[in-house]
Each structure stands twice: as structure tokens, then as C-alpha cells.
Simulated assay, not measured.
Amino acid sequence: MPPGGPQAVGTSPGGPRKVSRVILLDPADRILLLHGFEPGDPADDWWFTPGGGVEGTETREQAALRELAEETGITQVDLGPVLWHRYCSFPFDGRRWEQDEWYFLARTDRTEITPAGLTELERRSVAGARWWTSEELLSARETVYPTRLAELFRTLLDDGPPVAPVVLAPEIV
């Protein structure tokens, strides 16, 4: 069960993979989550935020926008601040993945999802997407990553973005 989703590519020689994730909110303050699963076992499934690894010389912000466009087709967003930082390590697709994740706040008026830019691995491990209300997420029985997302999302809606990014506890599965 990967806490970060299927787009991770392992550990680089310089440490964990740098990943940008997006907390995408629509006009009704719903959050977009992708539905992922282990490629060899579709019953091993979870929900996670859009995002993926920084490529080449791109910034974390550029990676967040690129990954969001590839995974959802949504390109018209207002990218806000970094909300949270998280380190995670997990098994997925037969190997161990380590990631240093930054979660950006973003807003959009568009709610139609067109995941035309998925990688081959994502096509084998992403079952779809769904917009969630805070109440739905708080009462969900499904696995969601990061594991505290429901609580973090509710706090975001109640209090707004933090003054500085919150460092989440590492998640090692």
C-alpha cells in the first residue's frame, strides 16, 4: 500500500525522491483524490493526492503543475502555498520507494477529469478519481494517504493554510 501513490520511482543516489503533490480544491471545497491499487493485486487499493516526482531542473511548483495536468487534464489552477512536508517509504510494484513530498494547495473551477498523460505504470495502477467533501473523507473506511489527510483537510478548511509548511510524521510501511 504505497502512501505516496504509484508514480514514485525509487530512491535516487542523493536521497529520497523529490515529489510534489497537490491538494486540489474545487469551488465547493471538495478535494480531488486518485484511486490507486497495487498492479498485481487490484484488491490492495487506496486513495491519494495527485502529484509526482520532480524531473530534471524543474522546480517543485513546476512539477506540481505538470503532474496535475498529466494525471487529471486540469491545467487552469491557482497554485498556492506549500501546506505540508512528508517523508514516506513503502513497497510498491515489487520494490521499495522513498519520497520527500511537498503538498501544495491549489484551486480550480474545473471538475472534469481527463487523465490523458498517465505513465505506463499509472495506467496499470490508477482506477480513477473522485472529488470528496470533508465529511465524506472524515467518514471514509477506505485507505487514504497521507493517513491523516481527513484531519489535515478539515483543519485547512477551518483555519486556512498554515503560516509555514507543517512537517508531518514520517510514514513507513
Score class of each variant (00 low, 15 high):
residue 50 P to S: 08
residue 51 G to P: 00
residue 51 G to C: 05
residue 51 G to A: 10
residue 52 G to I: 07
residue 53 G to K: 13
residue 54 V to P: 00
residue 55 E to T: 12
residue 56 G to M: 05
residue 56 G to Y: 09
residue 59 T to F: 09
residue 59 T to Y: 10
residue 60 R to T: 04
residue 60 R to S: 09
residue 61 E to N: 06
residue 61 E to D: 10
residue 61 E to M: 12
residue 61 E to K: 15
residue 62 Q to C: 04
residue 63 A to L: 09
residue 63 A to I: 07
residue 63 A to M: 07
residue 64 A to P: 01
residue 64 A to M: 10
residue 64 A to K: 09
residue 64 A to E: 01
residue 65 L to F: 01
residue 65 L to A: 05
residue 66 R to V: 01
residue 66 R to P: 02
residue 67 E to R: 11
residue 67 E to S: 08
residue 67 E to V: 02
residue 67 E to G: 01
residue 68 L to I: 07
residue 68 L to V: 02
residue 70 E to G: 00
residue 70 E to P: 00
residue 72 T to Q: 02
residue 72 T to S: 02
residue 72 T to P: 00
residue 73 G to T: 02
residue 74 I to E: 00
residue 75 T to P: 00
residue 75 T to E: 08
residue 77 V to H: 02
residue 78 D to R: 10
residue 79 L to F: 09
residue 80 G to M: 02
residue 80 G to F: 09
residue 83 L to F: 05
residue 83 L to D: 05
residue 84 W to Q: 06
residue 84 W to R: 08
residue 86 R to N: 14
residue 87 Y to A: 12
residue 87 Y to E: 10
residue 90 F to L: 03
residue 90 F to K: 03
residue 91 P to Y: 14
residue 92 F to K: 06
residue 94 G to W: 15
residue 95 R to I: 09
residue 95 R to F: 15
residue 95 R to M: 14
residue 96 R to T: 15
residue 96 R to N: 11
residue 97 W to L: 14
residue 97 W to N: 15
residue 98 E to W: 03
residue 99 Q to H: 08
residue 101 E to N: 13
residue 103 Y to D: 07
residue 104 F to D: 02
residue 105 L to N: 07
residue 105 L to D: 08
residue 105 L to P: 05
residue 107 R to L: 03
residue 110 R to H: 13
residue 110 R to D: 05
residue 110 R to I: 04
residue 111 T to V: 12
residue 111 T to P: 02
residue 111 T to L: 03
residue 111 T to R: 15
residue 112 E to V: 05
residue 113 I to Q: 04
residue 114 T to K: 07
residue 115 P to F: 00
residue 116 A to K: 11
residue 116 A to V: 03
residue 116 A to F: 10
residue 117 G to C: 07
residue 118 L to G: 02
residue 118 L to A: 04
residue 119 T to D: 04
residue 121 L to T: 14
residue 121 L to P: 04
residue 122 E to I: 05
residue 122 E to M: 12
residue 124 R to N: 10
residue 125 S to M: 06
residue 127 A to C: 07
residue 127 A to H: 11
residue 128 G to S: 06
residue 128 G to H: 09
residue 129 A to I: 01
residue 129 A to T: 00
residue 130 R to E: 13
residue 131 W to H: 07
residue 132 W to L: 12
residue 134 S to Y: 05
residue 134 S to T: 14
residue 134 S to H: 10
residue 136 E to P: 05
residue 137 L to T: 04
residue 137 L to A: 06
residue 138 L to W: 06
residue 138 L to Q: 14
residue 138 L to E: 13
residue 139 S to M: 09
residue 139 S to N: 14
residue 140 A to M: 07
residue 140 A to C: 12
residue 141 R to Y: 05
residue 141 R to N: 14
residue 143 T to W: 09
residue 143 T to C: 06
residue 144 V to Q: 06
residue 145 Y to L: 03
residue 145 Y to N: 11
residue 146 P to V: 10
residue 146 P to E: 10
residue 146 P to S: 12
residue 147 T to R: 15
residue 148 R to G: 03
residue 148 R to P: 00
residue 148 R to D: 09
residue 149 L to I: 08
residue 150 A to M: 04
residue 151 E to P: 00
residue 151 E to Y: 13
residue 151 E to W: 13
residue 153 F to V: 03
residue 153 F to Q: 07
